[in-house]
Design a binder for these strands. Structure first.
Length: 179
DNA sequence: GAAGTGATATCCT
DNA sequence: GGATATCACTTCG
């Protein structure tokens, strides 16, 4: 499988979000198919971390596309985002859920029992992704997204989950039947 | 349905 | 400098 190239990420955030569905997120021996994502825009989107401009934490969102934005939420969970849009333009895609493909034993080791990658905080644990990967290049290195080709199946579009602002925007994308 | 957890941003002195 | 409110979640009851 080929790794997704920089030009794929250098697109409008919503296009990157839709394009990521069905692709394969891989970290070392562990990997999974992306089945649920959310887009976070830079403008007119108060739920986005980048909404109030550039800060030490949000600078990678404004940086080069195809890099990872990893942050800690609620004191205990990491969330993985993919930076979209050209350099200097904010926009990122939150990876919300995977179906595990390889390295299942390793994932179980890291997660313990129960669901492996059905939520944003779970999949980072299962793949061993932490803030150490913040800013990592997804087109090279151990953390990558692979091009699995076009997926068959419908994309469901819904409002985003777990946010208090800009709830109405239809920016959550799910592969139908994979949820 | 609620608690737990700590970094971050935005106030305040 | 310091205090406080908020938060793109998970787990256990």
């Amino acid at each position: 499988m080929k790794t997704l190239t920089r030009s794929f990420y250098r697109q409008p955030t919503v296009d990157v979000a839709r394009g990521l569905l069905g692709q394969v997120l891989a970290h070392g021996e562990t990997s999974g198919r992306i089945i649920e994502v959310e887009a976070y825009l830079g403008q007119n989107d108060l739920a986005a971390h980048s909404a109030r401009g550039i800060t030490p934490r949000t600078q990678v969102i404004f940086g080069s596309p195809g890099h990872a934005y990893v942050y800690l939420i609620y004191g205990m969970y990491e969330c993985l985002n993919v930076v979209a849009e050209p350099d200097g333009v904010p926009g990122c895609v939150l990876i919300r859920a995977l179906t595990p493909l390889t390295g299942l034993d390793r994932m179980r080791e890291r997660r313990g029992t129960g669901d492996l990658a059905g939520g944003p905080g779970k999949l980072t644990q299962a793949l061993g992704i932490t803030r150490a990967q913040n800013g990592a290049d997804l087109t090279r290195g151990p953390l990558r997204i692979l091009d699995a080709g076009p997926h068959q199946g419908e994309i469901l579009v819904t409002p985003r989950i777990g946010i208090s602002q800009s709830r109405d925007l239809p920016l959550r994308f799910v592969l139908k039947g994979e949820r």
